[in-house]
Amino acid sequence: MGVKLRTISLVCVLMVFWLLLSGHYTVFLITVGIICCTAVAYFMKSMDVLDEEAQSFHLLGRALIYWPWLLVEICKASIGVAKLILSPSLPISPTMRTVKASQKTALGVTLFANSITLTPGTIAVEREGDGILVHAVTKEGLDELDEGEMDRRATAFEGRA
């Protein structure tokens, strides 16, 4: 996708956003919306931030496989953390270790790290070499992450590696 096509698609996406937020569909407001969206797209183009990562539509298809799995993981992890918090003795064992990240692109690593942070009980702290430094509230949670199922699925989500 060239820069021109990306600018046009950005204007369209912003316009849909505007229409959803406004809820008033008069000629004046829609005209103002088109002017604002075009201006924002122009600013983004001249700031040179309109690259491939800004619009990753090619991931949408695989997201439908990845997100439901991630939701199930989040539910399981939440119940685990809730049990930890509610048990009177607070049986936590905070651990910090580097977990391998086999994604190739920056976007893939970001996806993986955000998935780690989104799951309660594990936080991605920093990129370290070809891994991610992870803090976990229990040692078991980190061991489960170390088995690498999330890593594999994030790599598959990233695709074209």
């Binding site: 939440s78 953390v81 918090i85 936590i92 905070p94 309660p120 594990t122 509230v137």
Partner: peptide, 18 residues
Amino acid sequence: RMPDVFTRMHAASTSDTT
């Protein structure tokens, strides 16, 4: 209840995400 910043973050992410 949690004892330090990092563990508190886990608790906060339970309420903020789930």
